[in-house]
Nucleic acid binder design. Structure first.
Lengths: 345, 345
DNA sequence: AGCGCTTCCGAAAGCGCTTTCGCTCCGCCT
DNA sequence: AGGCGGAGCGAAAGCGCTTTCGGAAGCGCT
């Protein structure tokens, strides 16, 4: 058997240097843009580099002390529109700044989140954006907190989106205020018998949104304990199932609030299937204003969060030199009234 | 000013080796799972490694000849549900196989695609999945083709999704057959005066879907040249604008086919705003069956593509040793009839 | 006992790059 | 003229790891 010709290995810096008739060190300086090279030599080396198709080896670069130009992003699920929008924001920033984003999803498994952070560390990513979750379950969250602490202690940078249990930079929608606004909208329409499609009990987001609902409900002189809250899982299917459970147990409700939009969409779908008219018989409201919210039937009343901007801001925070104390960026929210809410009959 | 204590640098393999009382080489073998270490020693080293919180430096690993455990994924826009679903499929595979995915988006700019591929190469990614696009514009595509060729010649692996102009492994939905099926559905309902919301003229996907529509239309003995096709851009807003243009020029159409779902959704929204009833006055059909398709009003008739599976398959192809000839994986498609299509009045 | 084998481990090379250090050459001041 | 400083470049160290290569035991066999 004749030996197969080995694949042409990519040109290395030394090859460029030889072709340009300079030393390795000079070539490196010319291509990294550091000082100590005359302008002509630098230009010549760069020309040679492009001619031979030189692509620097980022592993070697990182190893030798250069900056690692990668940031990590951990989300639940890129297919979920909420995280999709956040990822879009993050990627806009990374792509425009010449960074590359390492993305992985946890599929809502706290243990997976820990594993993903570890994997990111193994790749010597120095900046990580953690979106979503914010588990407060016993065990897992403290593990994650410990991992994050050890990472930042080692010089790593972390920014979180929508969770606030970690002592790192954070981009925080005001979930409680948003939820209160939404509740006031419903109360203002005249609704008194409401139900809530909750989220995983372990998420801080859920806590905050529930707290906001409770506050506004209480302000109206009503007793929150009378409001049924069924757990959901923040997915469309989970929303449909939760709506089924909720309305079978409490057929007389005039409004249901879902703690995020996909669940509201699921609820809508179940209600329509069950022959309940929305909003005439029952109002439905969501949270986040993901793109689909305006296209469902009836168009969803919800609280808009600037998801793309949140992604960009998180990336911006994580790339910035650390502050003495964690920074908190509060984001604006906005009540978007569409067709899914109306006064009760 | 007192010197700040330098951040504790992360433990290195040599530290683990010393702590375990073995040599560097043995420690490496123990942790990579290669042969030549007794089980006890390996276990001991691993125990020490976890105790001191050792995280291997993947740059060093990659440099020293180990496999780079990163794959690249290039999409138009992760916020677009089509690519979101594909990304979800890819990430499922990468996460479960212990890979990390470097994702970047091109925002539909062919020059950006070239830049992204270059950036991925700089990071010594050996496997790249290219989703979407498939530009046939003069210049850019040949640049991309050249880049891909040089990458594969250097031992890189590439798989594409939904484009077939590149000599690499591909996951290909049968766009033409799907479009033909969709057209037959509409013709079967009795529609004769149809219009099409096209896509960027430079995409192979658009070519193929148009070809399928044309074939089925011709089979019915009709003259395709009478069918108006207005260009769109595959976005929701573009779909709304294109629908406006189409129906202002041809008010008598009884059905509109959009070459992807987001455009169909945009068309739906414009039609409803314009007071046209769907499907009573006019039918609308899409393509892809993105998640939102079933939740819009009226629920969208469309051709379902297994997007998550396509992502997984592409990753699987790209991780597999190269074949002599490029592999082509054809995917199944399926007509999903919902409420947005009905016989013309 | 003595030989060769296998098994397990350590020493050292080297992956491709950045960067410190030091040398050379040139222009300038005294 | 002689000396000095700075600019421009080259040699070489090392980043943290994997992986040959070679040596030291431990085994069964004759």
């Amino acid at each position: 058997m004749a030996e197969r010709p080995s694949p042409p290995s990519p040109p290395r810096l030394i090859d460029v240097a030889k072709a340009a008739g300079v030393s390795l060190a000079t070539a490196s300086r010319a291509l990294t843009g550091s000082t100590g090279v005359s302008a002509e030599v630098a230009a010549h080396v760069q020309a040679v580099a492009t001619r031979v198709g030189y692509v620097p080896n980022s592993h070697a670069r990182a190893l030798a002390g250069g900056q690692a130009s990668m940031v990590g992003l951990v989300v639940h699920d890129v297919g979920d529109p909420y995280f999709g929008e956040i990822a879009r924001g993050v990627l806009r920033e990374t792509d425009s700044r010449g960074y590359l984003a390492l993305i992985s999803q946890t599929e809502r498994d706290p243990r997976a989140e820990l594993a993903r952070i570890r994997a990111l560390r193994a790749h010597r990513v120095t900046s990580i954006v953690l979106a979503g979750s914010g588990y407060v379950e016993a065990g897992t969250e403290s593990d994650i907190a410990a991992e994050v602490r050890s990472f930042t202690a080692a010089g790593g940078r972390v920014a979180v989106i929508g969770r606030h249990h970690l002592p790192v930079d954070a981009v925080l929608p005001d979930n409680a205020a948003g939820a209160a606004t939404l509740m006031r909208h419903l109360l203002g329409l005249g609704h008194r018998r409401l139900g809530v499609l909750g989220g995983p009990a372990s998420l801080t987001t859920v806590e905050d949104r529930l707290a906001g609902l409770r506050t506004a409900y209480g302000e109206a002189g009503l007793d929150w304990r009378a409001v049924p809250v069924v757990p959901g899982d923040f997915t469309r299917e989970g929303g449909a199932a939760a709506a089924a459970r909720l309305l079978r147990a409490h057929p007389g409700l005039t409004a249901v609030v879902a703690l995020n939009d996909p669940m509201a969409v699921g609820a809508l779908s179940w209600l329509l299937n069950a022959g309940r008219r929305v909003p005439e018989e029952i109002s439905v409201a969501g949270f986040d204003d993901v793109p689909v919210a305006r296209d469902v039937y009836p168009a969803l009343t919800t609280i808009r969060l600037p998801m793309v901007a949140m992604g960009r801001q998180a990336l911006e925070l994580v790339l910035r030199p650390p502050a003495a104390r964690p920074r908190r960026r509060r984001t604006r929210h906005e009540l978007v009234v569409r067709a899914s809410t109306a006064p009760p009959r």
